[in-house]
Nucleic acid binder design. Structure first.
Lengths: 326, 326
DNA sequence: TTGAAAGCGGTACCAA
DNA sequence: TTGGTACCGCTTTCAA
């Protein structure tokens, strides 16, 4: 690999001049041309390690999340990455597959990889653990989608409780009284918040919560699929079901249809995250649409602001979901 | 941030000794203890840039792919990442969202980020372009799932044509004569191969290919959904349909069911990539299951071998799909 | 505008 | 085993 020194030699200027040219400093036209030629000729590329060693930053942002195959996260990360790039940063994505050991492990790795900042969708870490792992490192953090109790940082969340409250209420107003919910793991931040919205809506409308109508398990197809069967096998099955995640929604659809039930005539469903699927169906199904783009962009904005020296108080932003009830 | 120098000072040994300790060299018990203590006390962490600058490697592997939200890629990347880690490497994931400009852009970025090796699922790049972008860089490459025409490198692929041949044949043996296929974009490597398997099976069984029964579009839910409708609206609709991708399969299911058709009685379907969904249904649906784990592990193995100096000929590995016909 | 030189934080060679 | 030291490739200050 050619180095900046080689370029300087070939171009007949000093090494410092080449550096200045590369970094956009002003250089005499003539020298600029010579340098450019030398770079071409030698196929020179800056060594990122040498540069980062000197500048103390890498222009890279770690993105740590449970599972990027979930369409929601996929969309958030896409938007995030896009915004970050526009501002000269790039992202280093790391998934921990909802595995708690990997969560710690990947955080350690990201930290040791020299990231300038971190976007984090936490699941199992405590504030103490986080602080211990990242202590003194001065790596700005933005929490996304979920928050660690007691960990002070910028955060961008969806208004989970409100959205589900709205969805549940819509179902109630359609006349439903037996409304079930199939949700993610109880210890996950968003699942908890969504449950709150559900319970509040029921209670506000004088409907008693029924334990059998609330199912909680992994955020997976199987949960929606078998959850639906369980519900339908109940002595008094629900007349409507709310899913709280993409895969759960698909599983729910599948099971319901397999039983020959028509949606929404035989059983009403409120979907989550799968707008394409829900709106494409006939008739279109109601669905909660989280603002993935905006979440990603906002997180990027906050992080870059910190990176550029902003030191104001932590910002907690709740972004409204679009509850499509058509 | 504390440096190795600080550690040396606090531990009362030389900087060289600390370095040796950190990198697993033998150090007197007593010194080891002192160094360990100093590291703890100072919360010292090696500076990855300084290290990489000196060693000329970063222990990081770039993974460049179209879209990690596809369950197939998600699974491949998970396995890949896992294998890589076990061997001391970590991965830098970059998705280009099936966008050709981003494909080039992200490749450039990965290259400039100092990766030691690259795993690449290509879509639009030519061999010339690749060589130009990566020229002289001596970054080992493993192509996965697809291959660039004329680009010499290790590659790990599924036996797309064979798998689809088997699936099509199974349908034929069940008595179907009008078998449709809904597939991804025609310019995508895997779509082409799968089409070949389909055509060959038809021809081997004396069935004439019918243009109207072959639909090709994006690898997306919408393609399966509207594709299915198009097929069913035909004067002579097919009695069976083969999907060639996860989302297409789901879209196909959805549309078929919406029409009140029962699968497989009213219309038979051969799914792709969505084993969980297909096997969970009653009755279970036949499905092509690509060996994601094995693909990921094999790619990791090849890459690490290159990284460790192996210089044998390029290896092209075809991995068998499991065609579940139950 | 240009260039000499110091130094970023490590690794590894070599002599002790 | 230990430590002095050269050097990895780049940025940046400062004097010219």
């Amino acid at each position: 690999m050619a180095t900046i020194k080689d370029v300087a030699r070939v171009a007949g200027v000093s090494l410092a001049t080449v550096s200045k040219y590369i970094n956009g400093g002003s250089v005499r036209e003539e020298n600029a041309r010579a340098i450019q030629d030398a770079i071409q000729e030698l196929d020179y590329r800056v060594n990122p390690f040498a540069r980062s060693l000197k500048t103390h930053h890498s222009k890279s942002i770690g993105i740590l999340l449970p599972d990027i195959s979930a369409p929601f996260f996929g969309a958030v990360v896409t938007a995030l990455d896009r915004s970050l790039r526009e501002q000269g940063y790039h992202s280093l994505i790391s998934c921990y597959n909802a595995n708690h050991a990997m969560e710690r492990d990947n955080l350690r790795f990201l930290i040791s990889a020299g990231i300038d900042g971190l976007v984090y969708v936490p699941e199992d870490l405590s504030a103490e653990e986080y602080n211990e792992l990242v202590a003194n490192l001065n790596v700005p953090l933005v929490q996304v989608d979920r928050m660690i109790q007691g960990l002070d940082s910028d955060a961008v969340l969806a208004d989970n409780a409100d959205a589900v409250y709205t969805a549940t209420t819509a179902l109630i107003e359609k006349g439903h009284r037996r409304i079930a919910m199939i949700s993610g793991p109880k210890y996950v931040f968003t699942a908890k918040e969504r449950q709150v919205g559900y319970l509040r809506a029921l209670s506000d409308h004088g409907i008693l919560f029924e334990d059998a109508l609330f199912i909680s398990d992994e955020n997976a197809f199987a949960t929606g699929y078998s959850g639906c069967q369980t519900l339908l096998d109940l002595e008094h099955p629900p007349t409507a079901v709310i899913a709280t995640n993409h895969d759960i929604t698909i599983g729910l659809f599948t099971a319901a249809r397999e039983r020959g039930l028509r949606i929404p005539d035989d059983i009403d469903v409120f979907g989550f995250d799968c707008v394409d699927v829900c709106t494409m169906m006939k008739p279109p199904l109601p669905v909660v649409h989280q603002p993935e783009q905006l979440i990603g962009r906002t997180a990027a904005k906050y992080l870059v602001q910190r990176l550029e020296g902003y030191t104001g108080e932590s910002r907690l932003t709740r972004l409204k979901c679009r509850v499509i009830t058509d």
